[in-house]
Amino acid sequence: MHRKYREENMLSFGAAVIAAVALGATLSVDALSVAMSIGARMHGKLGYRNYGAAIFWFTAVHILMLSSGFLLGDALAGIINGVGPWISFTLLGLVGGTMIRSALKDDVEEENLMSIPPLTWKTLVPLAFACSIDAVAVGSSLGLSRNLPFGLTIICVALATIIAVACGLYAGNKAGEKWEKPAEIVGGIVLVFIGLKSFV
């Protein structure tokens, strides 16, 4: 009987791991796209410190949003669901529009725009917030249903975000190095599209 109980627990834990990994992958899709866009703006000049800063802030904000939803529940989720799409669209639209404008200007104006550090915390935190709003609703659902262990979910979401941001920055940086302005234009369009997608 004890052996059967342990086997059932192992199966339920295995299912929880699979569900948490799938959830982490789902929540990190927007982070991957945004990371590719901001990587493209670097035009091949992405350094290790840039990787570290982006990975840290995106992961920290994702965990904070997920934890906030889990702890505060429906009240916070209701507020975020009401204003979240507008916040996301505004933030991503502004950055995406700046990228497109930067790529279409002549060299002097582009240099002035590029002099603004694109990977400081002042830029990264709003972008991370804009693409992690869904995590509040997910956290709220987890808090109410208790279907998944919260610690396991946090670990899986954090790992998925780290991988997504690192891969996105690398791919975007390589594209920006090779195609420069076209890659930056596409990156800006992607950011605007993600902002619009938040209304769906």
Rank of each mutant, 00 (worst) to 15 (best):
G172F: 00
L169C: 12
C156M: 14
I162F: 15
L159V: 08
G139D: 01
G172P: 06
A164M: 14
A166P: 02
S141K: 13
T153I: 09
S145K: 02
L169Y: 02
R146Y: 13
L148V: 14
L159M: 10
A160W: 03
L142V: 05
N147W: 07
N147Q: 15
S141T: 14
N147V: 11
R146Q: 15
A164G: 11
I155Y: 08
C156G: 09
G168E: 02
V157L: 12
P149M: 07
G143P: 02
V138G: 01
C156T: 04
V136G: 00
G168I: 05
C167V: 15
T161Q: 14
V165W: 08
L144N: 11
L152Q: 05
L152H: 08
A164L: 09
Y170M: 07
L142A: 05
V136N: 03
N147P: 00
A171S: 12
V157I: 15
R146L: 07
L159T: 06
V157W: 00
L148I: 11
I162T: 12
G168Y: 00
T153V: 07
G139C: 09
I162V: 05
Y170A: 10
G151R: 14
V138R: 01
A158D: 11
Y170V: 00
A160E: 10
A171E: 04
N147M: 11
A158C: 06
F150L: 13
G168K: 05
A164C: 06
F150I: 01
A158F: 10
L152K: 08
F150P: 09
I155P: 01
N173P: 02
G139L: 02
G151Q: 14
L169D: 05
L144I: 13
L142S: 04
P149I: 15
S141E: 14
A158L: 05
S140Q: 12
I155A: 13
I163G: 00
V138H: 01
A171P: 00
I162P: 01
L152M: 14
G151P: 06
G143R: 09
I162L: 15
G143V: 10
A171Q: 05
A137M: 06
V165Y: 10
A158V: 10
L152P: 06
